[in-house]
């Protein structure tokens, strides 16, 4: 039995706040849960809060990129918020720059970004 990360709905945005050290299976479950919830709720945005996440390795990094791509296909935009500076430095050195993933420094800025989707050019593929 692996635990599941809760997916909360606020308006037409789904919010996921990762608070535990993620096991790989939990990461895959979250990806599936999010895709299902986007379709079930018709959400137009997804915010993934990683404020509490101490490391993002290539597996979690790939999940973030894949989730952003899947939600885009399901007509929802994803924003990753709250990345720690040490995590950003490590990810880039690891070789993952998450080119297709939109980020914001805080939850508030992330929600704001989703509320005004045209305020920024679309992410490069």
């Amino acid at each position: 039995m692996t635990e599941r990360v809760p997916v909360l709905k606020i308006g037409d945005v789904l919010l996921v706040s990762i608070q535990v050290d993620l096991e790989d299976q939990t990461v895959l479950d979250l990806q599936d849960d999010l895709a299902a919830r986007i379709v079930a709720t018709g959400a137009s945005g997804v915010v993934i809060d990683i404020t509490a996440v101490e490391i993002v390795d290539s597996f979690v990094g790939r999940m973030l990129a894949t989730t952003a791509a899947i939600s885009r296909m399901l007509d929802a935009e994803t924003v990753v918020v709250g990345m720690r500076p040490a995590v950003a430095i490590t990810l880039v050195e690891l070789g993952l720059s998450l080119g297709g993933v939109r980020t914001a420094l805080t939850l508030e800025k992330g929600l704001d970004m989703l509320a005004r989707p045209d305020s920024r050019p679309p992410a490069k593929p």
């Binding site: 790989d24 101490e54 490391i55 993002v56 390795d57 290539s58 597996f59 720690r84 500076p85 040490a86 995590v87 430095i89 490590t90 050195e93 690891l94």
Partner: peptide, 17 residues
């Protein structure tokens, strides 16, 4: 340092996997 901790733990995660 916090950055070095993060780098080492991330490397350990990759290698353990």
């Amino acid at each position: 340092s916090l950055v070095d901790q993060t780098k080492l733990v991330t490397a350990a995660s990759e290698l353990a996997r």
